[in-house]
Design a protein around this nucleic acid. Structure first.
Lengths: 110, 110
DNA sequence: ACGAAATGAAACCATTTGGTTTCGTATATA
DNA sequence: TATATACGAAACCAAATGGTTTCATTTCGT
């Protein structure tokens, strides 16, 4: 019983650029740690720690398969982000109308 | 010429809960620093440093009026946030449909 | 049975972060 | 003019962050 006691929340989790890249990488593919770390200019252990933080925030799920640990995105906690953002939508009136068009076009960011 | 050279980006800026509260506080009201800091259990100087970070990220605008420095929300950089999570929306298909309803209802978060 | 692969835990380190208190300066007001 | 108010800069500090290397454990493939 009691709260889920998450150590890192979504906002903290996505604050780091490496972790944002991790989420994109794991968005459509499930991958084991060593393969994941091949995409980053740091040690496997460092990547592993980032994955841990993402996992604490609920943004990735891990699945043990033999000796490897496979990770995959779980986008569900991003809803909190969307809600938070949604609160502010009421505050930009005219200014945002133009920029909204930019958002609608879905060229990838980062 | 050259990039705007922002020290703190939006993701870092909103990672801290105090700064998220600041944004909500300044969403519809322009306020001077001392009045703002009255809403937080820390020194005026500490609040001032948070405001500086938000300012670097472009999320607040400051305006000098006499001896006071008035701050107000500028939501424009939040568009980057929307674009970012917008990328992931294509990855939550069925699961998100239900939660979407929650988002649409606008009870305040935090 | 044995060696290699996959991983996390632990200890360690430098830098950043979030807070403090003190001080100087500009502006308002009595 | 003198005093009080509003604020940021600076120096400082403890804890968190993001990285490293080393080591032990589990599992796979000969």
């Amino acid at each position: 019983m009691g709260e889920p006691q998450v150590k890192h929340d979504v906002f903290q989790a996505i604050a780091d650029p490496t972790r944002r890249k991790l989420l994109k990488l794991l968005a459509d593919k499930e991958m084991p740690v060593t393969m994941i770390s091949g995409h980053f200019p740091m040690s496997r252990t460092a990547v592993s720690k980032h994955l841990r933080i993402l996992s604490e925030a609920g943004l990735v799920k891990e699945r043990r398969v033999g000796r490897e640990n496979r990770y995959r995105l779980d986008p569900e906690p991003l809803v909190e982000l969307k809600r938070w953002y949604g609160y502010f939508e009421r505050f930009w009136e005219n200014k945002m109308a133009a920029l909204q068009l930019l958002v609608e076009s879905d060229d990838p960011v980062e």
